[in-house]
Amino acid sequence: MAVSVPASFSAFTARRRALKWLSAAPASLAVGGTLSALSALSARDALAADSASTTTLVLGDQAGGTRALAEAAKVLDGTPYAFRWANFQGAAPLFEAQRAGAVDLAPAGDLPVLAAAVGDPTLKIVATRVGSGAQLGILVAPDSKLRSVADLKGRTVFVSSARGSISQFQLYGALAEAGLSKDDVSVRFILPVDAFAAFASGSIDVWATFDPYYGIAVQRGARILRDGSGINSGLGFITASGAALADARKRAAIADVLTRLQRAGDWALAHPDEYAQIYATLTRSPLDAAKRITQRASLKQHFVNDADIAALQKVADSANRDAILPRRIDVRAISDTHIANV
């Protein structure tokens, strides 16, 4: 059965649901030691110097990908703050939790970040992750009579995970490329885990989705009508909640986590086979699928900069023209380019 995420609901309900997700999510705590006091401490130094710090970050994740990267590279060992992971199957519930104040950091693709900003203008983009548009696509069963995107006219396409997803953007781009409009298909939104089961059972004919669900489905025989290459930017972003950034110690911890994740991405790019093996083990993915998923994943990371803002603004304007987003988003206004200076 398809499960859709409501566009809006009360803050009380959102927080209850977010806290419920967090209570069921696997947790990892790490507390570091004490650094020598300095005469002039930066916010990050002050955080590290306080061995009794009660600062705790909640690190949001999708399908365990960021956690697998961090644990494979061992970059979060010895942090001078506590942290725990909160895993979600897609961007929609992840940002629902961030909006409710239950998650401090949230990694997602370009369009989901923009969609989240519509409902939460206080979130800020703090880092950019560079990957490939081939990490998502439109899938059909191996014996499907549908041979091209043009054949989708009049069909129902199931899109993961909710309105404003990278898969919706990719679908509309592929339709335009094939000479069709978004009105030539019926779009239904479905969360990835539900979609995966429905697609495997034959209940869904056409599914637009993203890694790791996309890669595993292909490994199991799904046929690709069109991937996101040349349509999607391949850029991913990490956002921080406004409340977390307003807290001086959390802001310092966020800057430190981002630096560590940057090192993790560099390690994974330098050790692709080792990372794929660890990713497969930690996410319980087939090794063949894990190799493909990690090869095209958004691993190269840096603090958000002006070029990233310009690239994402193009996505925002296009999504607004296509009515994927209800209004134009000013990307610079939702970006924090000073986090690296903490």
Rank of each mutant, 00 (worst) to 15 (best):
A7W: 10
F12D: 11
F12K: 11
L19A: 10
L19W: 01
W21R: 12
P26Y: 10
A27W: 11
A30I: 12
V31H: 15
T34K: 15
L35Q: 13
S39Y: 11
S39M: 12
L47T: 07
D50S: 14
A52H: 11
A52G: 09
T54R: 14
T54P: 02
G60E: 05
A63T: 03
T66R: 07
T66N: 07
R67P: 01
L69A: 03
L69I: 02
A70W: 01
L76F: 15
Y81R: 10
F83R: 11
R84H: 10
G90P: 09
A100E: 03
A100H: 03
G101V: 02
P107Q: 07
A108E: 02
G109A: 02
L111F: 05
P112Q: 04
V118M: 12
V118K: 11
D120E: 13
T122G: 06
S132W: 11
S132N: 12
G133L: 10
A134T: 12
Q135G: 14
Q135W: 05
L136V: 06
P142K: 12
V149I: 15
D151F: 07
R155P: 01
Q168K: 06
F169T: 01
F169N: 05
L171Y: 08
G173L: 08
A174E: 01
A174Q: 02
A176F: 05
K182E: 06
V185N: 02
V187W: 01
P192I: 00
D194Y: 05
F196A: 08
S203A: 15
D205C: 00
F210R: 04
D211G: 08
D211L: 03
Y214Q: 04
Q219H: 13
R220I: 00
G221S: 06
A222D: 01
D227F: 03
G228Y: 05
G230Y: 05
L235H: 03
A240V: 06
S241F: 08
A243D: 14
A244T: 12
D247R: 10
A252F: 10
A253V: 10
A253C: 14
Q262Y: 06
D266V: 08
H271W: 01
Q277G: 01
D288A: 15
K291E: 04
T294K: 03
L299D: 00
K300C: 00
K300Y: 01
N305V: 01
N305F: 04
D308A: 09
D308F: 07
D308Q: 08
A310L: 08
A323N: 12
R327P: 01
R332Q: 02
S335W: 00
A340T: 00
